[in-house]
């Protein structure tokens, strides 16, 4: 087979693969619909896709959905921002100081052994049902993966590059800017991708424990009133939120790491 027809085959395969995903989604939706229609379950146990869709439109028009989504999004973004910022700063310091790493690592490891879901009620009790406790929870959940990947990223810089920079009499700051940041970026992004996904979980956990607004609150309220279609709407909104965050990080990764082979080949 010549390379041209091989290429064509590959394109067809890629196109088919993309279609397959959509087909699979449609099939799942259809299965859900059939189950709701003929499953004999009441609507407050399993609403049909059309129930969910109408509930979605109503919540959209009333502004209810936007209000709760906005609250969750704000918590997620602020938590991500503060969690990532502190993780980067501490990660850089730890990467540079083995002594400090040894002093702090028992606390860091222990902090990871504590399930955040279990201490979320405590944090809400201490810091109130407002936005602050949610930012804290999101920040804490994001902190560790970003921290670990920052440390590994900086540590992974090959020593030969430091020799090169020092032979050129580069300053500490220049080494950071021209060497350590770009070299650590691929591993750092791995941590941020995990952090972005976890951040949504963190916000919802906080809201379920105690809050006034947010998608977690919406789920709680709707469940209490047997408004199951609304629970579905809230859950789907959370999924879309998490996917968007993941997509943004992946997009940034592609933009900043264009030099990596597997990225520019895609």
């Amino acid at each position: 087979m010549d390379s041209n027809s091989l290429l064509k085959l590959r394109q067809t395969y890629n196109r088919t693969r993309r279609w397959l995903g959509l087909v699979s989604l449609a099939a799942g939706l259809l299965a859900w619909w059939l189950a709701a229609l003929y499953g004999g379950l009441p609507a407050f146990i399993l609403p049909s896709p059309s129930d969910v869709w109408t509930r979605f439109l109503r919540a959209l028009v009333s502004g209810e959905l936007a209000r709760h989504t906005g609250a969750t999004l704000l918590e997620v973004l602020l938590g991500l921002f503060f969690g990532t910022t502190f993780a980067i700063i501490l990660g850089y310091i730890l990467a540079k100081s083995r002594v400090l790493e040894q002093i702090l690592s028992p606390y860091l490891v222990a902090s990871q052994a504590v399930p955040l879901v279990a201490i979320a009620p405590l944090l809400v009790l201490w810091f109130g049902p407002g936005i602050f406790s949610k930012i804290l929870i999101v920040g804490l959940i994001v902190f560790f993966p970003v921290l670990v990947n920052t440390v590994f990223g900086i540590r992974a810089v090959p020593p030969a590059y430091y020799d090169l920079m020092r032979s050129l009499r580069a300053s500490r700051r220049q080494i950071l800017h021209h060497l350590e940041i770009p070299a650590a970026l691929p591993i750092f992004f791995g941590g941020l991708r995990i952090g972005a996904t976890l951040s949504v979980i963190g916000a919802v956990v906080g809201e379920l424990v105690g809050a006034n607004t947010g998608l977690g609150v919406l789920i709680n309220i709707s469940r209490g009133t047997f408004d199951t279609p609304m629970v579905f709407v809230a859950v789907f909104t959370l999924i879309v939120l998490a996917l968007c965050l993941y997509g943004i990080v992946a997009w940034m990764e592609r933009k900043f790491l264009i030099w990596q082979e597997h990225i520019s080949n895609n």
């Binding site: 030969a160 090169l164 009499r169 070299a183 990596q260």
Partner: peptide
Amino acid sequence: IGMVFQQANLMPW
């Protein structure tokens, strides 16, 4: 100083 190492040590980015 200009230095050349055994490996080129080019910055991949």
